[in-house]
Amino acid sequence: MELSLHRLRMLRELHRRGTVTAAAAALHYTASAVSQQLAQLERDVGAKLFERLGRRVQLTELGVLLTEHAEEILGAVERATLALEEAQESVTVRLTAGVWASVASGLMPVALTALAVDYPGIHVRTRELAPEDTAGAVRDGTLDFSFVLDYSDAPMAWDTNLERSVIAVERLHAAVPSGAVPAGVVSLLELAEHPWILASRKSHFGRAVRVACQRNGFEPKINHEVEEQSTAMAMVAAGLGITLVSDLGLTLRPDGVDIVALTSPLIRTVSIASRTGALRRPALNLVIQAVRTAAAELGLGTASDEAETTTYPENTDVATN
């Protein structure tokens, strides 16, 4: 019997998530592709591994047994990869990173260009995901690392299976139509009467901004809900309202948008999330250092007391945006 690591990973996700559709979404495959691979796994094993109960899939006793061993096998593969990297004199490895728009456009080009010069054996592939999904994809093994955020006004607990390496500290600024706010600085409360363009409550960014507005004594009048800062600023340029934008998001600013400082700026911390123990990987540490250097070149420093790697209490909500 030969067991495919690829299929074992699919079986593990099926066990974790309960449906083929959810497992496929986590692994970025179609549901039909996952179903076919799981059917092939049953043929490889020569036994029934799962049965359908309505829309959900329940593992048989043999399926549960194989899943338990799959966890051990996949963990051993990761440990073997780490050991090989540590034993190599030169670093040669492929890593997959979870990103969103402002990180992809603001940090990664500078960091990956420098990395290619100093360490050409490190190849980083990026995958843009919904910000709230990136940390979960690291925990599940789909990604090697991802960028995540934490906001001063809405801090979030973290999963014990993840470690965080702080990259930079950003401020949020008001993005308004040209000429709409003549002053060079403005308070959140002074923006209360403007129509807002903001991410939905399901995003950590959307929740954090709403909490900040509430703490300043008002509920923002949201005319448009959009998730990407670039989309929100395009609507600001058209005169449809105002929004908040991060330092990294400023690289996406179109013409017709003024950036106004907040009197009490909202702060958010940009970090890299990786699985506990993964920071022993030399390649990952070199990538983290390259990204920190890129952030510093953009003027985004790290608070000295935040720059250490930290493990956080377990929580199903992992702070991202």
Rank of each mutant, 00 (worst) to 15 (best):
K221Y: 02
D258Q: 09
G299I: 02
P282M: 04
S146Y: 02
A23F: 09
V318S: 05
T276A: 09
L62A: 13
D44H: 08
R125C: 07
A70I: 04
S165H: 06
E86R: 04
E89M: 11
L129C: 08
A22L: 11
E190H: 13
V99Y: 06
A180K: 12
V291W: 07
Q229R: 00
S264V: 09
V211M: 07
R280S: 11
S246H: 01
D305S: 08
M108Y: 11
A23T: 13
E72F: 04
H28D: 13
G136R: 12
L279H: 13
L65D: 09
V166M: 06
L162C: 08
I167D: 04
G277M: 06
A76L: 12
V291D: 01
L143P: 10
L65G: 05
E193S: 15
L279P: 03
L240T: 01
L248I: 12
R12S: 11
E86Q: 06
E42L: 05
M1W: 05
L244S: 03
K48A: 13
P282H: 05
A283N: 08
D305E: 12
P177D: 04
A296P: 01
A261N: 10
H194T: 02
R201I: 03
I259A: 03
T134S: 14
F50Y: 15
P265E: 00
A111E: 03
S152F: 05
A97N: 00
L3A: 04
L262R: 04
T316N: 07
A135C: 10
E225M: 02
L198A: 01
E61T: 12
L11D: 02
W158M: 03
T19R: 06
R281M: 07
H173T: 05
R268N: 14
Y312M: 14
F145Q: 06
A183S: 14
L286H: 09
T92H: 14
P109I: 08
L38P: 00
P254F: 03
W158H: 13
A157N: 07
